[in-house]
Nucleic acid binder design. Sequence first.
DNA 1: CATTGTGAACCGGTTCACAGCA
DNA 2: TGCTGTGAACCGGTTCACAATG
Lengths: 256, 256
Amino acid sequence: MATGRNHRPATRSRGIPEATVARLPLYLRALTALSERSVPTVSSEELATAAGVNSAKLRKDFSYLGSYGTRGVGYDVEYLVYQISRELGLTQDWPVVIVGIGNLGAALANYGGFASRGFRVAALIDADSSMTGKQVAGIAVQHVDDLETIIDTNGVSIGVITTPGGAAQQVCDRLVAAGVTSILNFAPTVLTVPEGVDVRKVDLSIELQILAFHEQRKAAEELAQEPPSAAGLPAASEGRRGDQGPDGDIPAVMPA
Amino acid sequence: MATGRNHRPATRSRGIPEATVARLPLYLRALTALSERSVPTVSSEELATAAGVNSAKLRKDFSYLGSYGTRGVGYDVEYLVYQISRELGLTQDWPVVIVGIGNLGAALANYGGFASRGFRVAALIDADSSMTGKQVAGIAVQHVDDLETIIDTNGVSIGVITTPGGAAQQVCDRLVAAGVTSILNFAPTVLTVPEGVDVRKVDLSIELQILAFHEQRKAAEELAQEPPSAAGLPAASEGRRGDQGPDGDIPAVMPA
DNA sequence: CATTGTGAACCGGTTCACAGCA
DNA sequence: TGCTGTGAACCGGTTCACAATG
């Protein structure tokens, strides 16, 4: 999931590699912070450090968007914020529905960063009738029976699934039938969707399991490294900002 | 991150590619379901479908673990569950701390799939004194002042950060100093860690932004495709199970 | 002359296609 | 005969290194 995706394998959108797309939000976040500090320009080196990537990668990424930098100087922060926002489609705002208002669904509904940039929680949907009408994050929960109507009247094309695993595929089918074409899935389930629908998944337990794998390996190495020669200091390490997590690639959180 | 990771780039652990490691939990989940239905064996084709990958990839993945299949027959479900669990380090259980008990932290604490496989919530930690002592998911919240003691007495090596972005790096530093070597970061922040510490990140807003990008592209294509010839049915699509989301690769959810 | 933009080498991972084996 | 295991081709993405340039 790493990083996997869901697109036509051949002709890529407008030449922007998927890996680059996955990093644009990271650059945007760093640039927004600079913008708030009224920094006028950044070099690829500075920005790369802030975003946690190396500068060559960043420059190559930006080269896919066009030549927005100035040699000898760097990039204009405001201009770049605008270009990336536009490229990501954040100049319009996207109504989003969240289906499954358990602990996680409620947490997401309350998530501040939602509204800030291009997204708006248009509706909260739950199958439990006793939830209907309750306010969560200032929004009244609606019943799943009305899912199709809600999608339609709000013009929703992005859905977030935070239901238990067992309900996810069914909810997904209804979302897609109602016109949703992008789904963010937090349920621990592999969703089957028609061509043209994008699915990304976020899976807590998978992330933890990947960490456990490496954790175990570290423990094993520690034992194995004792015997050889110098059992001294463990390779003095300065701070780094390595690539962090999936890109794609990868985990689902299931509400209780 | 897809997937990106945080490891020495050269000598890979025990020859198991990172991309394979990221898929093992997926296979394990599918196998566990089969096991519960008492299915004795599966072919690579069946299991691949259940896990949402293609069979060649699955076979290659398994080949890194060893030759656990039987030609002409398939794989023994129970045996494979055991081998993958062992490989992922899930035969022992990992005490985990969650730092930042807001909406999201509470949601994760309540997440059932936690305890089920190898993980145990050893402690909940929050900086807000008014939270101290409160029960969340049956566990008393402890104050961040005691972080080091908690890590130490519980032998914790995996930490989950669900604090606001501003506190994440600081919490991370303390976790690492106290001995944590694997971190799952839900805060929208790039964490800097010393060599040898693994960080994976889960970022809601990044995931949504990636979806928005593709959503926008679809809309643009629709317009562009109208002009040509046949504006008929949109390429009849049978259900697929594509790769879904990051693997690696990559978003952070920030509690309110 | 500092910094971008990019061709070319490199590398991990995926897919293909078939040999090997129960 | 059917399915696994894997070498080889392929491909997207990363890194290198330097030419281009404001």
